[in-house]
Every structure is written in C-alpha cells, then in structure tokens.
Design a protein around this nucleic acid. Structure first.
Lengths: 111, 111
DNA sequence: CTTCAGGTACGATTCAAGTCGTACCTGAAG
DNA sequence: CTTCAGGTACGACTTGAATCGTACCTGAAG
C-alpha cells in the first residue's frame, strides 16, 4: 500500500542548471505550474494532468522532473503518485515557484 | 559612435519558456549571472566574459539572450556592447535575477 | 485464474540546439 | 590606402532531447 519513494537529489544538491533545463519544456512546466498552484501539496496521480502526449513520454518527463529534484515520485506498482517538493525548492531557490504561479494558467498549449 | 540597439521583445512580452530555455545553457547562464552580479548595470563588452567557445558561438548565445529579452545588444559595427535588462526582468519575473545571484560564482566550468 | 489499466524498458526516429570552419563585413589605427 | 581585431552570415556537423512503437511488468478487480 505504501509505495516506495523513487530517488532524487538532496535538497542542498539541487542544481539550477538542471532545474532550468527541466522547466524549459512546455509540458513539464505545465505540470509544475499546476502543482505549484495547489497550496495543499497533496499527492497527485500522474494521469491527472491531461498531457497531450503518450504514456511513455509522460514517464520520461516525470523522471526528468524527479531527477531535477522538483518532485517526488511514489511508486505503487501499477500506478504512481507525484508530489511537489515545495519546501526544498523554496529553501534552495526562493521565489522560483512564485514565478510559475504568476503565469497564465492557459499556457498548456502544445508547441 | 552611438551604436544602434538591436531589437528584442517588449517588457510585457517576455516569455517564461524562452527565458528558461535561454538559461538552460551553461554559458548563457554564466553570462547572465555575471551581469546580474554587477549592480551598476553598466554596458559591457561582449568579449569580457572569457567564454571558452568560438566567436561564432558567442554571437549565437548573445542573440538567444537578446531574443529572450534578457539583454540589450548595442551594435557599434566592429564591436558590440551588452546590457542586462534588469528593470524589465524584475518587473515581469521578480526574484529571477536573485536566483542567479545566489549561485556560486565558480559555476563557469565547461560541461 | 484472467482481464485490464497504469506504468516502465528499450530501441528507433525525428528535430532542435550547440558548435565550429570558411568567408565576409565594419570601424579604428597605422 | 592597408592592416587588424571584433563581429556576423551561412553551412555543416554532432549531440542531446522529445516522441512514439513494441513488448513487458504490476496490482486490483472480476
């Protein structure tokens, strides 16, 4: 029941370059913007983002977000949860999430 | 003597995606970090950044930074000046430059 | 058990981006 | 004028990233 947390970098090890690279992609930025908009920071299903891309590509994007240290992935076997690492991000890069939150929500348009 | 200012996007038209894409590159981030560190915001020569890349590639990177709206380029014909658009960036993305400024300055290492 | 949806692994493809070589332009200094 | 350093234009190359097809795994529900 309690899924295992997939590994990501420590809070102090977050790299600004990796973060910018992660947020350079439209779809990943959309995911993070949606996560940042929900102040409750509840765990969220990976298929709740309506991404206009295949499952395999979504797996790829979530992995990039996790390896950049922006989200936690919780593996339940046949489904997966995702949670924003808000505290770690705010500690290392204060104000970053506010930048995403200030964006117009309708920016999920495909390139 | 007075060089002409090369065109870039208006302050209100700055796109977060383009900004993140611009800052995803190590060399461009190095340039912007150095610019952000100098609070005087003086115009600066394009060859004053010690980038370990060829002239043509530097031209390319400065163009990307300008088209993202992060810097102004001033063309003098046989040399070029560059200036951080601090006010515009702060207005549109408050706190962004602070993130760069907080980075360790020795992050100019080539990949 | 079987079925099924969510997710992953691996490989292939496609495309954008970083890089440089060659040639050329520009203005300043001899 | 010529020379020279800084910069650009264009093309070519290379690498990385995004995407998907196929096949497979996992746990829950019949």
């Amino acid at each position: 029941m309690t899924g295992k947390n997939l590994v990501g970098p420590e809070a102090d090890a977050l790299d600004l370059g990796a973060v910018f690279r992660a947020l350079a992609d439209e779809h990943r930025r959309s995911v993070l913007t949606q996560l940042a908009a929900d102040r409750s920071d509840n765990e969220r299903g990976c298929n709740s983002f309506d991404l206009p891309i295949s499952k395999q590509t979504q797996t790829h994007h979530f992995r990039v977000l996790r390896e950049a240290g922006l989200v936690d992935e919780i593996d339940y076997g046949n489904r997966k949860g995702i949670r924003l690492r808000r505290a770690d991000i705010e500690k290392r890069f204060p104000g970053l999430l506010a930048l995403l939150g200030a964006e117009p929500p309708g920016d999920t348009a495909p390139r």
